[in-house]
């Protein structure tokens, strides 16, 4: 089931949340809407779901214009940021809810509903929790139950709003790998919203980078990382250095920098402001004359042994093979 967003605009009062958004999501794809808070990614997701009405524009599912459809007829699965589990219902009843709400003629029998719920609980690997209430579950468990509940009605597309936002770091990593695997199995067209670039890189087939209500770039994780379409994307996808040169500013990543203790052609000079070991890596911050912003350098484990990064030490650095001349600001 493909999703098409055609020229969607949305404003809240004075605030233009979405400006002329066009987006085509292929059938079976897992797409991340990535951007800082307030960039409009959640609004876009809610508009696709039908939870919010756009001021103008259309939403098309597999060639069928669903803009005018009521939310219950769009047949989307939606996982809320804080899960929105029904607090007065058991896990079982939560998952069964969508099936029980169906009109009498389409409603499966109680036995069929129970089978389906068990199957989904198995899928999210939480079969022993059927009789618990949401308040008795951990964050990660709630998240998976919310997913099972959304899948119960066999939606045409799956939408997830910051699916890992409310979890702690470790659970988060486990769950996103699990979600990526699940997507491979189920192969349901899925869109999720995140502000975390690692999450988007690790899970998504394609990333839609958004900022201030517009789409900055669409591409595979490798594409957007290798060829950021704008300075915003460059900064958002990873740590970035900005160096003022005679030919204008240059952008490059900390791991691309080469260091030398001797002056060499193409090398600039800086003094060590700080040196800090982060896990296996070493992060050196250099102070460069003529600019307030320091230059960050990350070095592999072998650099640890060599030493020579004491505060105030003089070093020479090269921006690496692929610095980009800074983007023209629109």
């Amino acid at each position: 089931m493909s999703i098409e967003v055609r020229n969607v605009n949305k404003r809240f009062g004075q605030f233009q949340a979405l400006k002329a958004i066009d987006l085509h999501i292929q059938s079976g794809e897992l797409v991340a809407l990535l951007g800082p808070s307030g960039c409009g990614k959640t609004s876009l997701l809610r508009i696709i779901a039908g939870l919010e009405a756009p001021d103008s524009g259309r939403i098309v599912f597999h060639g069928e214009d669903v803009s005018g459809h009521d939310v219950r007829d769009r047949n989307v699965g939606f996982v809320f940021q804080h899960y929105a589990l029904f607090r007065h219902m058991t896990v079982f009843d939560n998952i069964a809810f969508g099936l029980r709400m169906k009109p009498k003629r389409q409603r499966p029998s109680d036995a069929a509903i129970a089978d389906k719920v068990r199957e989904l609980l198995g899928l999210v690997q939480l079969d022993w929790l059927a009789d618990r209430y949401p308040e008795q579950l951990s964050g990660g468990q709630r998240q998976r139950i919310a997913l099972a509940r959304a899948l119960a009605v066999e939606p045409r597309v799956l939408l997830l709003d910051e699916p890992f936002g409310a979890l702690d770091a470790k659970v988060r990593k486990e769950l996103r790998r699990w979600l990526a695997r699940l997507h491979e199995d189920v192969h349901l067209t899925s869109v999720f919203v995140t502000h975390d670039q690692d999450e988007a890189m690790e899970v998504a087939d394609r990333i839609v980078v958004m900022n201030k209500g517009v789409i900055e770039q669409i591409g595979t994780p490798a594409e957007v990382y290798a060829n950021p379409a704008s300075e915003f994307v460059y900064h958002f996808l990873g740590d970035a250095n900005r160096l003022e040169t005679d030919d204008g500013p240059l952008l490059f990543r900390p791991h691309e920098v080469r260091l030398s203790t001797h002056p060499a052609p193409g090398y600039r000079t800086g003094t060590v402001r700080e040196c800090r070991q982060i896990g296996p890596l070493l992060r050196v911050t250099l102070e460069v004359p003529g600019q307030a912003q320091g230059i960050e350098v990350t070095l592999g484990p072998q650099a640890l042994a060599s030493g020579g990064f004491d505060r105030g030490a003089l070093l020479h650095f090269h921006p690496g093979e692929a610095p980009r001349t800074a983007y023209r600001t629109p």
Binding site: L51, R149, A152
Partner: peptide
């Protein structure tokens, strides 16, 4: 949000 979730799951 619980009401929204219910509507998305097909509740009238």
């Amino acid at each position: 949000t619980e009401e929204e979730a219910a509507r998305l799951l097909g509740a009238s």
